[in-house]
Structure formats: structure tokens, C-alpha cells
Design a protein around this nucleic acid. Structure first.
Lengths: 104, 104
DNA sequence: TAACCATATAAATGGATATTTATGTGGTTA
DNA sequence: TAACCACATAAATATCCATTTATATGGTTA
């Protein structure tokens, strides 16, 4: 896999970051910390069903969520909790940056 | 500042993630780990000068880089090293996810 | 099989954003 | 001041992406 001199894969990073770059997708991602059906997510977040399906498809493509069909229901679940840690760090960093800015 | 029940600010997270969601912007971000002038970045990354300026403007807007003018030169530098840690974790997570997928 | 439910997909639309090309601005030096 | 350099900005374009609306698929139950 191609890496630059930092031993880091820009493509992977940008790809995953893209998944985190939309508020609705983030809400869905956080929502499936516990395994949920599509309709449950739709109700919980008050988003249209096709929109939720669309974002879930993206999240699945990024392997951040996994899918399981049970009868007519389809359940989605967060694949790896580390994404939550990363999000927390993004949040903390963002707030610190804002604090510094408004301090000066 | 508005937070959801996870004590987390979706807006900040999505905003910062957007900054990381473009490969060229990532390259620029990593490049200014050491303070550099615009022209240096342009040469180093082989990107057009307006494109680099454009992305630097975005990075500055996100407070991820800081600016300093010295004579005719303008120097940009990473504001906070924590973004590098976050990028490393994104990379590690991404590679692990890929590994799992190709394993099964 | 028909009707129904949950979800996925397609098509259409609007808005954002990456990139290029052209031009402006501000500092420096002759 | 004029010419020049470094950088920023504007305008134009093209691509991508979020969202909506409409429709299809696949499973269930009558």
C-alpha cells in the first residue's frame, strides 16, 4: 500500500475523514454504537428513510459499520469503537482551538 | 456550545473532518509541520500556487494552521500537533478495517 | 398469490467545493 | 517611481455530494 515519508496513507485518511465530514452521517454513526434497524435510526434521528439508507451505504463502504439482515429488518452496527475515540479527540482539539482564538 | 447526549459537538467534528477530507489539503497540512512559506510548499508538493493558497486559507479558517508574514514571504505552520496523532489513528484504524475485510 | 412492510436503489435537483486561469495586492529593490 | 517578486483573490468550470421524490426489491403474512 502506497505511503508517503510519514508512513501514512493519505488516501485512507482522506477517505475515512470524508465519512466523518457530514453531520447527519456522524449522527447515524453515533447512533449505531448499539445495533439498530434502519427504521429505528430513521425515527430516532428524524431523517428520511432514503437519506439514512444512503448514508449507511457510505458508512458500510468505509467498513465503519457492519450489516446484518434478520427477516425483513436490516441491522447496522459500529464495526470498531476506535472511531469514537477519534471523534472525541477531534472534538477536544476543535474546542481548544476555538478557546485559544477567542482568548486573543 | 450545543452538544448532544454524547457530550460531543457534531458541528465542530464535521467541520474539522472536512478539512482532513481532501488529499491535497492533507499533504499541505503534513508539510507545515515545519513552518514554511507558500512557495516552498508549492515546490515541495508540486501544486499550483493558487490551489495551495486556497487550501491554506481553509486550513487557517479551521485554525489548524497559523500564519506569519515576514517581508514578502508568508509562513504557515501547524497550530497543534494533536492533529497528527488523530491522523495516525485514522490511518491505523483504516488499515485494520481493510485487513479484517480481506481476511474474511 | 396478493397485499404489505422494511429497506434499497434510481433519478432529479441544488449546493458545495476542488481546480484552473487570470488578475490584483502588497512588499521589495533598482 | 518602476519593475519585480510572493502571495491572495476573482471568475469560471467541473465535479462531487447531500437531499428529495419516486420506484423497485425482497421478505413476510394473509
Amino acid at each position: 500500500m502506497a505511503k508517503n515519508r510519514d508512513g501514512v496513507n493519505l488516501h485512507i485518511q482522506a477517505f475515512l475523514a470524508k465519512c466523518l465530514a457530514d453531520e447527519n452521517r456522524l449522527r447515524i454513526l453515533l447512533s449505531v454504537k448499539e445495533k439498530k434497524s434502519v427504521s429505528t435510526i430513521v425515527e430516532e434521528l428524524n431523517l428520511s428513510q432514503p437519506l439514512v439508507s444512503h448514508h449507511l451505504k457510505e458508512l458500510k463502504r468505509s467498513l465503519l459499520v457492519s450489516v446484518e439482515r434478520r427477516g425483513p429488518f436490516v441491522y447496522y452496527e459500529l464495526t470498531d469503537d476506535r472511531i469514537l475515540t477519534i471523534l472525541e479527540q477531534l472534538n477536544e482539539l476543535g474546542e481548544d482551538l476555538l478557546r485559544c482564538r477567542t482568548t486573543f
